[in-house]
Every structure is written in C-alpha cells, then in structure tokens.
Simulated assay, not measured.
Amino acid sequence: MAKARRSLDWGFPRWRSYGSSREATNVRICDRHGCDDAGNCPAPKAPNSPDRWYFCQKHAAEYNSKWDYFEGLDKAEAKERAQAEQRDNQGYAESQHYGWAGSGDGSRSADEMRALDMLGLEADADFDMIKKAWRNKAKEVHPDVKPGDAEAAKQFQAYQLAYDVLKQAQDRREWKG
C-alpha cells in the first residue's frame, strides 16, 4: 500500500506555484465553422429557445449585427420604447463622468479638465476652440522652433498629450452620439 503524500495546497501563502494544478481546463470552441477561438458569447439558436450557439466575440458581433430590437412595432411604439430606454439608461451614461472627478457639470472627466487647464481653456470650450488653442501653444514651443531646448520639448509633449486626451473624448462623444 502506497503512503499518502501530504498536499501542499493548504493555507496561505500557497506553497505551490500558481497555474501548476493538473486539472484540464474546459474551453468551449466557437460554433462558427472553421473558427478555433474560444466560444464564450452565448446566442439563442431560435426565439424563446433554451438552446444556444456559443461564438467568439467577433462572430457574436456578426450574428447580432442584423438584429432589430424594434422589429414588429409600429413607428409610434418604437419611438416610445426608444425614449423609455434612453430615459432609463440616462443615469448610467451620465454617471461615468462623476467617478472621481472634481467640480464641473459632469460632462467632462477629470483628465479632460486637466487637459483644458493645460491649454488655458474653460470647461465649456468646444472642440474648435481646443484645436485652435493647442495649435497656438504648440507653435510657441515646437522643437523645430526651439531646437535643443529640453524644457520647450517637454512643454510641447504636455500640450500634445492634453490635445490627445481631448480628441479621444470628442471621438467617443461623436461615436455615441
């Protein structure tokens, strides 16, 4: 009779390395023919059916691309439902800016507010004003205008970073929009 070995998997800290377990991990493969990615996005095979396809994220997006939430509703019902959803989800959309931000109306994040301060603009500045201020500030300290000036190069990078933060925020707003 073999002597039982003592397990090293007790208490804290773990005495064996992470990932050294011997159990096999079950990975479901995407149900799309020819795809070998992990299928972790369930999709119904038919309306009101418990059966599911399991797709990778790419094929799940393709599967859902033609799906119409308002199918079968007339225009008035579709408009009413869209407004109700907009109203019910408005709090979630607005709350993303309130996380750890400082003062303001909540329409800009703390990073955007710091970027606006860097460019010397108010919180209500539109993107044309942002672009104009960035160009003016960047022209003053551009490395081609002040070659060899390390402080000017550092300032130029700060202006560039501020512009990038504001540009990405503007792109997100237009995309949601």
Rank of each mutant, 00 (worst) to 15 (best):
D124F: 00
A169K: 09
S107Y: 07
A123D: 14
D144P: 00
A152R: 00
D126T: 05
L161H: 01
D149N: 01
D126Q: 06
W100Y: 07
G120R: 01
E122S: 15
R108S: 10
L119K: 02
K154T: 15
A169S: 13
Q157C: 01
D144M: 12
W134D: 02
S103Y: 11
N136Y: 09
L119M: 01
V145G: 04
R135T: 15
R135M: 11
A150G: 06
K132N: 06
E122K: 14
A169W: 03
M113A: 10
Q168I: 06
K131S: 11
Q157T: 11
E151V: 09
G99P: 01
R135H: 10
F127V: 00
D149T: 01
Y163T: 03
K139N: 14
G102N: 10
K146A: 08
L161Q: 06
R108G: 07
A138T: 12
L119T: 04
L121G: 13
M129S: 10
N136M: 06
S107R: 14
L116C: 12
S109T: 15
L116P: 13
V141C: 08
R135K: 15
R173C: 01
V145S: 01
L166T: 07
A138H: 12
K139G: 05
A169E: 03
A152I: 03
N136W: 02
E122P: 07
D111P: 00
M118R: 14
D149W: 00
P147M: 02
Y159K: 02
F127E: 04
K131V: 05
K154V: 02
A101M: 04
K139S: 09
R108P: 09
Q170E: 15
F127T: 04
F127K: 02
E112H: 01
G148Y: 05
M113K: 12
G104M: 08
D164G: 03
G104R: 08
Q168Y: 03
K131Y: 02
S103H: 05
S107V: 07
A110F: 14
G148V: 01
Q168L: 06
D149Y: 00
A110Y: 15
G99L: 13
S109F: 14
M113F: 11
E122L: 15
G99N: 09
L121W: 13
R114V: 12
K132F: 02
Y163A: 10
G106S: 04
A169V: 02
A138P: 11
